[in-house]
Amino acid sequence: MQRQDRAGPKRSEFVRWARAGVLAGIVVIVAVPMLTASWKRHHAAPPQASAPTQQMGAQPQPRVQLADFGAEQPSPDARLLANWVVATGNQRKHAFIVVDKKDARVYVFMPDGRLRDSAPVLLGEAHGDDVAPGVGDKPLEEVQPQEKTTPAGRFVAESGMNTEHEDVIWVDYDQAISMHRVRPWVETERRLERLASLTTDDNRISFGCINLPVRFYEDVAKPTVTQYGAIVYVLPEVKTLQQVFGAYDVTDPAQVAAARQSAKARPAVQG
């Protein structure tokens, strides 16, 4: 019994200390993660924000306005040129017309860059981007096959009349290059069939003028030029868009930056 009495107090003291140890352990288990989290909050690096598109305080870059071709699928050159015209305002708030010689197609745009309509065209029989010197002063029967080119370039469209009192859209009056209704007068030329074909190889038949389908000329091209005025862009087939127009891809930041740098490097025009 005495041994039991002596052992009793010791056992109770041991239990008391054990219980205290368990509680201390619980405190440690709970406190350590809390302290660790607190330390991390105060010492960890600040969270990284997603990369900003603009530096703080910098003005946001305006969205580039592009030509709207709607459901049309133009050639890469036609799209690049039309986008450049709209983005740079090269058409000077007029309507504009893009003639794609390689694709034998014409696109008529409203002043805001929306496509009004497009159609196939007939073009000069000879390939090339320059007009033959003096060809505008020659009678048609004296024009040589190699001189029957549709010149590439930027032209101011003018409504007018030709020598046969037919209304036309002058592209280059001095060289007698115009847009007009297709003329199916020479049966062997099969101009209507050429316009309707799905290939572009047979669209080269004119003396240099741009032949349009009759309804397209009367319902789209002529009214647009009359109402808004128009700039005509005839795309090259030998030269590049840069050579002829100074055009570049306005969706490519590197080309845009290069164009701006080139503009800054040009000498100022003296008044």
Rank of each mutant, 00 (worst) to 15 (best):
W170M: 10
P236K: 10
G160L: 12
Q4C: 06
L241G: 09
S50P: 04
P145N: 09
L81R: 05
V28T: 13
T188F: 06
K102C: 01
S197H: 08
S262N: 10
E141F: 08
Y233A: 03
R190F: 04
N90M: 11
E142D: 15
Y173Q: 14
M56D: 11
R63Y: 02
T240E: 06
E125L: 15
L192M: 08
V131M: 10
R154N: 09
V108Q: 04
A157L: 08
Q59H: 08
Q55Y: 07
K264C: 00
T199N: 15
A104E: 10
N83P: 04
P33W: 10
Q54R: 14
F216G: 08
E72H: 02
A265H: 09
A268K: 12
P120D: 11
A71I: 03
G70C: 03
G153P: 06
Y228H: 15
R154T: 07
L195G: 06
W17Q: 13
V156P: 01
M1L: 11
P223H: 08
L195A: 06
S118Q: 05
V86P: 01
T188C: 00
R191C: 08
L122F: 07
G8W: 15
D137S: 11
K40S: 07
T199A: 13
G25C: 11
P253M: 10
Q73D: 13
V269P: 00
R181A: 07
V186W: 05
Q261G: 06
Y217L: 03
V28F: 13
V86K: 02
A7R: 14
A49I: 11
I97Y: 05
R116Q: 14
A268P: 00
I29V: 15
A258T: 04
L198R: 13
R105C: 06
K40F: 14
E187C: 00
F245G: 07
A152F: 05
K239M: 09
V15F: 14
G246W: 08
D100I: 04
K102N: 14
A49P: 02
D130W: 09
A196I: 01
P236N: 07
H165S: 14
M161D: 06
F155P: 06
G124Q: 12
Y248V: 02
A257T: 14
R16M: 11
A230P: 02
R19W: 11
T188G: 00
L122T: 09
T163N: 14
Q59P: 00
E193M: 04
V182T: 15
T224Q: 09
K101E: 08
A71P: 02
G134K: 05
E237P: 01
D68P: 01
W170A: 10
T36S: 13
K264R: 15
R194G: 04
P139C: 00
V86C: 02
Q91H: 12
Q61C: 04
